[in-house]
């Protein structure tokens, strides 16, 4: 129960912070308009950062798994089929 509460607390904070941050950031008086280039390109850079980080984590995990569980790994343990010789 506590772990789920903690999980949702973390989620709530991670969602609210960027919204509150930007809600107060924009000015709308004449001569003080948001620059769409800045907003869009910054979003692009942030999304690219997330994408490459997730990509690195996922592909790094897969590479580690493939390397660790290759048959020739000294730490490899025989499967039940190889141990008992039964297929």
């Amino acid at each position: 129960m506590k772990s789920i509460f903690g999980l949702f607390l973390v989620l709530a904070i991670l969602v609210i912070i960027p919204i509150v941050d930007y809600a107060f950031a924009a000015g709308d008086e004449p001569g003080q308009y948001v620059d769409r280039r800045v907003i869009i390109w910054n979003l692009f850079y942030r999304m690219m950062t997330v994408a490459f980080t997730v990509g690195a984590v996922v592909s790094g995990t897969i590479i580690w798994l493939v390397w660790r569980f290759r048959e020739s790994n000294p730490k490899a343990t025989p499967t039940p089929y190889e141990k008992e010789g039964i297929w």
């Binding site: 989620l11 991670l14 960027p18 919204i19 809600a23 924009a26 769409r36 907003i39 979003l43 997330v50």
Partner: peptide, 23 residues
């Protein structure tokens, strides 16, 4: 938790950018 946080963050950033750009 990590996956949901990432999706919530990406979603809220994109929603916010669209809100600013469309206003």
């Amino acid at each position: 938790g990590v996956v949901i946080s990432l999706m919530a963050w990406v979603g809220s950033e994109a929603w916010n950018a669209e809100r600013l750009v469309d206003h």
